[in-house]
């Protein structure tokens, strides 16, 4: 148990360092803008507006937030200090709401949509890949390529097509949002029904785009395993195929868990833009409106939130992997000695 704690302590420490670097990038990149970033931001945001008092107020707030009169390390300490208090600044496009408030109201929607979609897509993809490797023939030659093609459509592209077909042509799905616009969130059956009907289309879009990529990886891994010596030996011993397959697929699954962690960032990125197409009130949509309104504090808050979510997801995957894979357990034991 001691090795276990030590191993994960190290990993969590590593993720904390990564988080600090991510926060630093979030802080630094906007400050590398040519010229005076505050002036650029204000003039870009104000556009054709001629309200001088508003411009001055915003300018003042930006200057305060950026702390431009201080040195970069000092600025960073102030930035982190504010961050630790949960202070992400005040949104300009939705004044006077705070960025933290806007993000906390949208992060739940994103989690509720993307987490199940990625997990279901991953499971179905692995299932399809395993079947394709074992049965070959039709599944490998027809079904798998179809899903591979679908997974090459960017999630937001598939989102537009799904919306067009199911919402506008067939009229069997709502055209966007998380619930009917004439409803208020409550615990009635009617409201939950509306939630589910608005959830279905984005959910299936994300699942469909996930399946193919996961299936192709699982197929390769399963073929490797099916050709391994232990499979041949087991067959030679007369162990039933059904029993061997359980071992084969369990072994093939392990690298797939790492694969999930590796592709998490890309998947989340595509899904966030799909969220925007479905007008789903999650982080993706918030980020889009922040970019459109040149609301810099809100955009910065969104990117930070997304990074933190992906980092946590990666850490969880890594911990799960350590629990499942005996080789990692062995490594933990080794570090104990």
């Amino acid at each position: 148990m001691k090795g276990f704690a030590k191993y994960y302590g190290k990993r969590i420490g590593w993720y904390l360092i990564t988080l600090v670097i991510a926060i630093f990038l979030n802080f630094l990149l906007p400050r590398l803008m040519p010229g005076n970033p505050v002036q650029t931001l204000v003039s870009e945001m104000m556009g054709s507006s001629t309200n001088a008092t508003a411009a001055e107020k915003i300018m003042q707030q930006y200057t305060e937030q950026f702390g431009l009169d201080k040195s970069i390390p000092e600025q960073f300490i102030i930035y982190v200090g504010k961050l630790l208090q949960g202070d992400l600044g005040i949104s300009f496009s939705q004044f006077p709401r705070s960025v933290g408030d806007i993000i906390s109201s949208s992060v739940g929607w994103t989690l509720a949509l993307q987490l199940p979609a990625i997990i279901v897509g991953w499971i179905l993809g692995n299932f399809l890949g395993a079947i394709a490797a074992y049965i070959r023939k039709g599944v490998d030659k027809v079904v798998l390529p179809i899903f591979m093609f679908i997974s090459n459509i960017p999630a937001f592209g598939l989102a537009i097509v799904m919306l067009f077909v199911f919402s506008l042509q067939l009229k069997i799905a709502p055209s966007g949002g998380a619930y009917a616009p004439d409803m208020f969130p409550n615990f009635s059956l009617e409201f939950i029904g509306s939630l589910i009907s608005h959830f279905a289309l984005p959910f299936f879009t994300m699942v469909l785009t996930t399946i193919g990529g996961q299936a192709i990886g699982m197929r390769s891994m399963s073929i490797y395993e099916l050709n391994a010596d232990y499979v041949k030996y087991s067959r030679f011993l007369g162990i039933k195929d059904r029993k061997i397959i359980v071992y084969v697929f369990r072994n093939a699954m392990l690298p797939q868990i790492t694969g999930l962690a590796m592709s998490l960032g890309t998947m989340v990125g595509g899904n966030l833009v799909a969220e925007m197409i479905f007008n789903y009130p999650g982080i993706g949509n918030t980020m889009f409106s922040a970019i459109g309104a040149r609301d810099y504090p809100l955009l910065s808050g969104c990117t930070l939130m997304i990074t933190i979510m992906v980092l946590i997801a990666n850490l969880v995957v890594e911990i799960l992997y350590g629990i499942i894979d005996p080789r990692v357990k062995a490594a933990q034991q080794e570090s104990e000695n």
Partner: peptide, 24 residues
């Protein structure tokens, strides 16, 4: 490398693209 594999690249992409500004 490990750090930049875990930090989603599209976040950095968005931050840089936004910082470069419309004109550039």
């Amino acid at each position: 490398t490990n750090i930049f594999t875990v930090i989603p690249s599209f976040v950095i992409l968005i931050l840089i693209a936004n910082s470069v500004g419309q004109a550039g």
